[in-house]
């Protein structure tokens, strides 16, 4: 490591690339493990998407499998199970947008108004915790609390009120999974909003209060505009991920409520692709999802730019 030439020397002229390679070779070497792993497990599968246009045969491999053109996509379009999964995905995404999205914002505002730092820290540590639970654990906890043999029904039975089975009811499944997402992720979700709230200049509040603006007017005219950028960014991310509503969560609960209610695009790929060995069919469903998702990210960013915000990337 004797070839150090200060890369911050502020020399105006650009060095020759061979000199820069000698100088930066350790830096490049450091990125190598990550780059290799991403090439193998992210970029190679990208080319593996050609299986969606094949009749993939595991024994023949990608190179020898028979080409099928758009056959797999035609199958998808004619498959009521696929349309059911797409409908479920969009519906669940919509329900979560309406019911989940405002919760972290409200919770952050509420927490921000608590004056005692100790109380705030304690509440924060508690509400962040479920984010680190696995979905298996979170759903097991829900099952133990709300399931047929859970605490709630134990209480209802004990008081002769009858039972209320929440965990296996397909009709209320959307509400159940949204409740689970809120329980697990809403607390963690406040972290960005708290940071944005802390960044708002307190002089603004003082000046507004001096001008006679009450609590609610300050919320409306200072706090919410201060959060606007972050809210738009989170909304863009949410819309961009509209087709990913949580794979493991549905995989685990599919047994309990049945595939009509619990199949989303990701589980569809798994059950009708890998589990049945119909790889090309599953890959086609995955490719369909990826393309729509990219369009959604692009569209959501356009929307953010239209609102004069940065979104995910700048214009």
């Amino acid at each position: 490591m004797t070839t150090v030439e200060s890369d911050r020397a502020g020399r105006p002229a650009r060095l020759d690339w061979r000199i820069r390679l000698r100088r930066d070779r350790s830096l490049i070497l450091m990125t190598l493990p990550a780059v290799v792993l991403l090439l193998v497990f992210n970029y190679v599968p990208l080319f593996g998407l050609v299986t969606a246009f094949q009749e993939y045969d595991p024994l023949a491999g990608v190179w020898q499998s028979v080409w099928a053109g758009l056959y797999q996509f035609e199958r998808l379009m004619g498959d009521p199970l696929f349309w059911g999964a797409l409908k479920n995905t969009l519906y669940l995404s919509f329900v979560q947008l309406i019911l989940f999205f405002p919760v972290p914002i409200a919770l952050a505002l509420l927490l921000n108004s608590v004056l005692s730092q100790r109380v705030r820290n304690f509440i924060q540590s508690v509400v962040y915790l479920p984010h680190f639970f696995s979905w298996v654990l979170a759903i097991t906890i829900f099952q133990q609390m709300l399931g047929g043999a859970g605490a709630l029904n134990q209480f209802l039975r004990g008081n002769d009120i009858g039972t209320w089975d929440i965990m296996t009811n397909p009709d209320t499944f959307a509400l159940l999974v949204t409740a689970q997402v809120i329980w697990k992720e809403a607390g963690w979700g406040i972290i960005v909003f708290l940071a944005a709230l802390a960044a708002i200049n307190t002089d603004l509040y003082e000046a507004a209060a001096a001008d006679g603006a009450g609590r609610w007017r300050r919320l409306w005219h200072i706090t919410l505009p201060g959060l606007r950028g972050v809210i738009v960014l989170m909304l863009v991310l949410r819309l961009g991920n509209a087709l990913s509503v949580g794979f493991e969560q549905f995989l685990i609960q599919r047994v309990a409520v049945g595939h009509d209610a619990a199949d989303v695009l990701d589980t569809f790929s798994f059950y009708y692709g890998i589990a049945t060995g119909d790889y090309s069919y599953g890959a086609a469903a995955g490719l369909f999802k990826s393309i729509i998702s990219l369009l959604l990210i692009y569209g959501a960013n356009k929307l953010a730019h239209a609102f004069g915000e940065d979104g995910l990337y700048r214009k």
């Binding site: 830096l27 299986t51 890998i274 990210i297």
Partner: peptide, 24 residues
Amino acid sequence: SLGHRFILTLLIITMFVNGGLIPT
């Protein structure tokens, strides 16, 4: 440093585009 922009782009692309479950 040499090539860091390129490598960074290579990394960030994987956040938006991936082969998905079955190809992986």
